Computed example of a mutant assay.
Amino acid sequence: MAAERSIPAYELNLEEYWHLIVRRRWVILFCTVALGGFSWLFAWLNQPPPVYSSSAQVKVEQQANLAELLMSGRAGYTDINTYISLVQSYAVMQRVAKRLGLIPKDATEEDLRANPEYLDEVASLRDAIRAEREEDTNIITITAIAASPEFARDLAQATAEEFIAYNIEDKNRRIFEAKRFIERQLKVVAERLRQAENAVQRYREEHGLVTIGEAGEVAAKVIADLEQQYRQEAARLNAIRFAFEELKQRLREGWDYRGVSVGVEVSPYFAQLNKRLIELALKHTELSTELTEAHPQMRELREQAMDVLEAMLDELAKQAEMSQARLEEIQKAIADNEKRFLGAPDEALELQRLERAV
């Protein structure tokens, strides 16, 4: 068996490496350039498009919504987050698209919804807008992102301006709606007020009340006046009755030409009779100096005087009856008013309820 022979290993030194590189330099250079070129080409082909951003800021005020206060009875405050959502809303983006000329300015809402291209334009603008609140402020920062700096600038500015315009128009619309609501309510309230006033007026007329506070005072004053009238009429009746009895006594015992003194005013007719009696007495005194009592003229004078006295007696009796009837009427009026005065609190309560409705 033949003995195995070992082959010595060959090792390259640095000089040989260098000579190898020099001999293959074009291959190495080509591979390096090719790999670099392919890497650059791959990176260039896959690089993202350039993105530009522009920002605009809008300050919003959280004021009480007067329209909502009038229409719903409570003060409404628009939250700033609502404004942020409104910036990216379809209504604002539609206005921005028209302003930038991306969709026709005269396009109606129906045209926009019927055309997918218009909707895509509005949607793309909405995706390009970001709105956020500056920390602890009422300032909204609107950021527009676009492929060109000019479009980003115009988009941010247009969005801010259209948001302000839309917000103003919306507030004006709410104010006009509140105005129309108030006008309608004024008509309703005016009609209710008229009905309430008529009810109060009818109640006052039916019960003779002026106001709640005056009801008792008026009733008390009326009763006091009636009582005063009763006392005066009673004194007059007593005076008439006394004069009647005195005159009747004079006629029984023998009469004379003296006038009848009553002390109160009886009636104009009684005053004329009394005046006539005094005139007859004066004439009797004048004639008595020349004529006797048996003279026909003197007898005629006495007959006239007797007629006057009897007429005065009848007038006193008539006035006494009238005075008595007047006293009864006053008594009845006092009783009615006292009864009414006792019922005044209930009537006052009802009147108060009606006046509250006014």
Rank of each mutant, 00 (worst) to 15 (best):
2 A>C: 01
2 A>V: 09
4 E>A: 11
4 E>F: 10
18 W>G: 06
19 H>W: 12
21 I>C: 06
21 I>A: 05
27 V>E: 14
29 L>C: 06
32 T>K: 00
33 V>G: 02
33 V>N: 01
35 L>T: 11
40 W>Y: 10
47 Q>M: 10
47 Q>Y: 06
49 P>C: 02
51 V>Y: 06
60 V>N: 01
61 E>D: 15
66 L>S: 09
68 E>N: 14
73 G>S: 04
74 R>Q: 09
85 S>E: 10
96 V>P: 01
99 R>Q: 10
101 G>W: 00
118 Y>L: 05
119 L>F: 09
122 V>T: 12
122 V>L: 09
126 R>I: 09
127 D>W: 02
134 E>W: 01
141 T>M: 06
145 I>Y: 04
154 D>Y: 09
160 A>V: 03
165 A>N: 15
168 I>M: 10
168 I>F: 12
169 E>G: 13
171 K>C: 00
175 I>A: 12
177 E>Q: 15
180 R>N: 06
191 E>T: 13
192 R>N: 02
193 L>T: 15
199 A>E: 13
207 H>W: 02
214 E>S: 07
218 V>C: 01
222 V>E: 10
222 V>S: 01
224 A>G: 05
228 Q>K: 14
233 E>H: 06
239 A>N: 11
240 I>C: 00
241 R>Q: 13
242 F>W: 05
243 A>H: 01
247 L>T: 10
248 K>W: 00
249 Q>T: 14
263 G>N: 05
285 T>I: 00
287 L>H: 08
292 T>D: 11
294 A>V: 07
299 R>H: 04
301 L>P: 01
302 R>K: 15
305 A>E: 01
305 A>D: 04
307 D>M: 08
310 E>P: 01
321 E>G: 12
322 M>F: 02
332 K>Q: 12
333 A>Y: 07
336 D>P: 05
340 R>D: 08
344 A>S: 11
347 E>K: 10
348 A>G: 15
349 L>P: 08
352 Q>D: 13
352 Q>M: 09
354 L>S: 03
357 A>V: 08
357 A>I: 13
